[in-house]
């Protein structure tokens, strides 16, 4: 076992490059998360409609993202769109599209679930008090639904961050790609490079996701009714 292997991290600007790669990862994730939250909430509220014609298309949309793996979605958009529609998309934009579509679908389901799980008498007593639909949402439903949806929302964000690891497969220059480049360049000098580089990336993901999932569990316990 080569114990000098770990020093590859501190060679030149390697660590800095990895961190910059991580920033790309996080940039994609955070833009997608913001879009997902905003659009997801809107679609989630729409999906509480009892109209089957409104429900169905959104349901199909959600199921498509549940059944087909995200990696496949990345490939589909990455290869199909340029080949058939003469539009050139950078891999980072493809990633953003797929992650936003996926995040929106899941987010809408969380929001919808939170709203319809509210006891029916909350709606009925709001109406009995003469609140308008807007007032009912503003003062009664949204505050309660928020508490129910925030923990699963954070879990979804954690999942999205973890899934950004796949971006390397469509050639986004993010943390893993940078890691692979470092490994290739240093392979002769540091034969154990891949052990340390993948090890450190492993740790980076853990350091981001662990606090998030801890936080969501804490909120869940705090808000449990």
């Amino acid at each position: 076992m080569l114990n000098s292997g770990i020093s590859i991290l501190f060679e030149g600007i390697n660590l800095q490059r990895l961190l910059l790669g991580l920033l790309v990862t996080l940039r994609v994730a955070s833009i997608a998360v913001v879009i997902s939250i905003v659009v997801g909430i809107i679609i989630g509220v729409i999906r509480t409609s009892k109209n089957k014609l409104v429900q169905l298309p959104f349901r199909i949309y959600l199921e498509l993202f549940r059944i087909i793996p995200i990696l496949v979605w990345l490939f589909v958009i990455y290869y199909i769109v340029p080949a058939n529609f003469d539009i050139n998309l950078s891999s980072e934009v493809v990633a953003l599209i797929v992650f936003s579509l996926w995040g929106t679908a899941e987010m809408s389901d969380i929001v919808r679930g939170a709203i319809i799980s509210l006891p029916k008498h909350q709606v009925e007593s709001s109406k009995a008090l003469g609140l308008s639909p807007v007032q009912m949402y503003r003062y009664v439903l949204i505050p309660q639904a928020t508490k129910r949806s925030i923990p699963p929302m954070i879990n979804l964000i954690t999942r999205m961050i973890k899934t950004t690891a796949l971006l390397t497969m469509i050639g986004v220059i993010e943390v893993i790609k940078v890691g692979q480049q470092i490994i290739e360049v240093n392979n002769l000098e540091y034969p154990s490079a891949s052990f340390w580089i993948y090890g450190i990336i492993f740790l980076m993901y853990f350091c981001i996701c662990f606090p998030l999932s801890r936080f969501s569990r804490k909120l869940e316990r705090k808000w449990a009714t």
């Binding site: 690891a165 796949l166 891949s194 090890g199 993901y205 996701c209 999932s213």
Partner: peptide
């Protein structure tokens, strides 16, 4: 709290 891909690469 870690991605499967990185687990596999490792």
């Amino acid at each position: 709290n870690t991605p499967l891909l990185i687990q596999l690469f490792f």
